[in-house]
Simulated assay, not measured.
Amino acid sequence: MHKYLNTFGLSAIALAFATAPALASAQDQAMPAPPPAAAPGTDTAPADAASMPAMNGTAAPTTTEAPAPMPTTAPLPAPTADQMASMEAWPQDQQAAYDMWAPETQNYFWSLSQDRQDIFWRLTDDDKAALTRLTEAQRESAWFQIKTKLEQMGA
């Protein structure tokens, strides 16, 4: 029964990680502009030129916007000598798992304290990636939730 509770607790943590980025991005998105109001004395709102149908066989005017450029990120720093020594001491399966992580996740791992690194290994790869994408305030909240769950499970 104890193992079942551990699995259930870690599943709850995974669910929190999976939904946190979606909730955070939903809060960050700007509200769409309201449709234009109808003119007094009419029951329809004015339409913009791009949404008006073509008349007399002419094509409707189109607007073209250049796509936004993709943001470029600076390459992440290579592991230090101390970090390389730590990695070499890991079991082979742990080294392979680390190599599969995205560079951002690897970089975030090294920013953690030793106790958080130990807990980080217990998370699923999806949870690790989700935690990496959170803002600093969201990360601290997530770590608080993780530690609370682990304390409740007695792990």
Rank of each mutant, 00 (worst) to 15 (best):
T64F: 14
A59E: 13
D48M: 11
P61G: 06
M87S: 10
T58H: 15
N56F: 14
A78Q: 14
D48E: 15
T80P: 00
M84F: 05
A81K: 03
P67H: 06
P53C: 00
E65N: 05
P79E: 02
M70S: 08
M70W: 07
A68M: 14
E65M: 14
T64L: 15
G57M: 01
G57Q: 04
L76D: 11
P61R: 09
P46F: 10
P77T: 00
Q83H: 04
Q83R: 04
A78P: 01
E88S: 06
M55Y: 15
T58Y: 15
P46H: 09
E88P: 01
A89T: 04
A45I: 06
S86G: 13
M55L: 15
A60E: 13
A74F: 06
T58M: 15
N56G: 08
A54V: 09
A85S: 04
A81E: 10
P77Y: 12
M70K: 10
A50V: 12
P69L: 09
A68V: 07
T62R: 15
D82Y: 08
T62Y: 04
D48G: 05
A45S: 08
P75V: 00
A85C: 10
A68T: 01
M84T: 01
A68P: 00
T63N: 06
Q83W: 00
Q83D: 03
D43G: 09
T64A: 08
M70G: 06
A66P: 00
L76C: 07
P53G: 03
D43F: 12
E65P: 00
L76P: 00
M84A: 03
A85E: 10
A74I: 07
P79H: 00
T44R: 13
A60G: 08
T42R: 12
A49P: 02
P69K: 07
T64Q: 15
A68H: 07
A47K: 13
P46M: 10
M87E: 07
D48A: 11
E88G: 05
D43W: 06
M70C: 08
D43A: 09
A45V: 05
T44H: 14
P67V: 02
M87F: 14
P69S: 04
P71A: 02
T73N: 04
A54F: 03
A50N: 07
T72I: 05
P67D: 12
N56P: 05
A60K: 10
D48K: 11
M70Q: 14
A81V: 00
P46R: 01
M84K: 14
D43L: 12
A78G: 10
S86F: 13
T80I: 07
A66N: 08
N56L: 14
P75C: 08
D43C: 02
M52D: 09
T42D: 12
A59I: 09
S51R: 03
E65W: 04
E88T: 04
E65T: 06
S86Y: 09
T73V: 11
P67A: 03
N56R: 12
S51T: 13
A89W: 14
A47L: 07
